[in-house]
Design a protein around this nucleic acid. Sequence first.
DNA 1: AGTTTTCTGTACCGTAAGGTACAATGAAAT
DNA 2: ATTTCATTGTACCTTACGGTACAGAAAACT
Lengths: 203, 203
Amino acid sequence: MLFLKRLPMPSGRIRQFDIEEALDRALEVFWTRGYEGSTLPELTKAMGINRPSLYAAFGNKEQLFRKALDRYQTGPMSFLADALSKPTARAVAEAIFSGFVRMQRDRDKARGCLIVSGALAAGEEAETVRRELAQLRQAIVKTLRERFKGAVQDGDLPAGTDCATLARYTATVLGGLAVQAASGTTEKELRLVSAMAMRAWPD
Amino acid sequence: MLFLKRLPMPSGRIRQFDIEEALDRALEVFWTRGYEGSTLPELTKAMGINRPSLYAAFGNKEQLFRKALDRYQTGPMSFLADALSKPTARAVAEAIFSGFVRMQRDRDKARGCLIVSGALAAGEEAETVRRELAQLRQAIVKTLRERFKGAVQDGDLPAGTDCATLARYTATVLGGLAVQAASGTTEKELRLVSAMAMRAWPD
DNA sequence: AGTTTTCTGTACCGTAAGGTACAATGAAAT
DNA sequence: ATTTCATTGTACCTTACGGTACAGAAAACT
C-alpha cells in the first residue's frame, strides 16, 4: 500500500513573520555589510525575528546568505537576465549598465553590488562563499559571451569579434561601477561613466 | 639648560625581526583576506612574530593595516603615481591599466587590489577602514581629473573634454580589473580587456 | 476538550576574536 | 660585572561571534 505524502498540513504554531520580507531585510544587511561583516544580532534585528526563528526558517548564516543572493539576482539584479533579450549586443550592454545605475537610486547604505562586495576577499570561514561569488561572476561573463556569440551569428556584431573579451569588458565595467557606487559616486556620475564605456563598443 | 634629545640610543634588547619585511608579509595577508578577514593568528604567523611584538611595533590591527596600505601604495601600486608623469592622458591611462595587469603576475592568493578588496563592505568595527578606503578611491579619481585637466590645457586632450568623467571611467575600469583579477581572470585576459577599454578614449 | 506539532523567546554553549600583563631575555651603556 | 631597558614568549583577559537546548505559546487535528 502506498501512502501519499501530505504536503502542506503541518498543524502547530504558524510562522509569525513573512519569510520573503525577512529575506529582503537580510539581503539589505548582507548588501551593506558583506557576508563576514553581517552579524547575527544585526541580521535578526533587521529581520524582526529572533535567532531560533532564523535558523528554523533558513538553516544557518551561510544558507541565509545564499537565499538572499538568489533573491538579489531575481529581484534588484533581474535587469541583468532581462537585458539578454534585448535585440542587439549593444542594447544588451546598455541595458545592463543603465539597469545597474538605476538600481543604485534611492539606496541609502546598501550601495554597490552584493555579488561584488558580498565577499571579495575574506577569511578562511568565508572561503566557500567567496569562491561561490567568484564563480558566479565568471558565470555572468560566460553568459554574456554566449549572448555575444549569438550576436555575431546574427550579423549584429562583426564577424571575428572577440566575444570573450567583449563579455569580460562588460563585466569589468559592471564590476567597476559597483566599486564606484560603493565609494559614494552619484547616480548621475555613474550614468556618464556608463555612456563613456559604451564608446568602446564595436562598430 | 636645554637637553638634547638622544635620538637613536635606546639600549635594551634589539628587535629580532625586520620591520619592513614583516610589513610585507602583513600586506600579503590583508591583500588576500581583506581587513576583516585577517586574524591576528594568521597575521603573526605570516609575519613570523608573536602578538606583543606586533603591537609594540605597529600599534594595533587597524594601524598595521594603514601601514600595510601605505606600503602597498608606494610598492606594488607605485605604477599609479608613476603613470601620472606620462606625456599624454592616453599614455597615463595605458600605463595605469598595464601596470595593474603586470602587478597581478606571479601572484598566488593575493589577487586583485587592496584598495578595493581591503574593505568594500564591512561590519561596524571596520567602518573606519572602509570609509578611508572609499575616500582613497575618490582621491585617486580626483588626482586623475586634475591630470586630465592639465592635458586639456596642454592641448593634449580636446577642449571641452569631460575630465571628471574621463577620470571616473579610468578608475571604474581599474576597479573592474581588480574585481576580475579577484575572480581568477588571467593576466592575458586582463590585458585584452584593458586594450578594449582604451577604445573609449577621446580622439 | 485535549493532543499534537510547530514556532517563539530566553538563556546558554563553545570557540575565536582583538588586545594585554608579566616575567624572562639579551644587547648596549656604565 | 652590573645595570638598564626595549623586545620576546607565555598565558591570560574581555568581548563577541555563530549556533543551540529547552520551556512556553499558539494553531490545527482528533
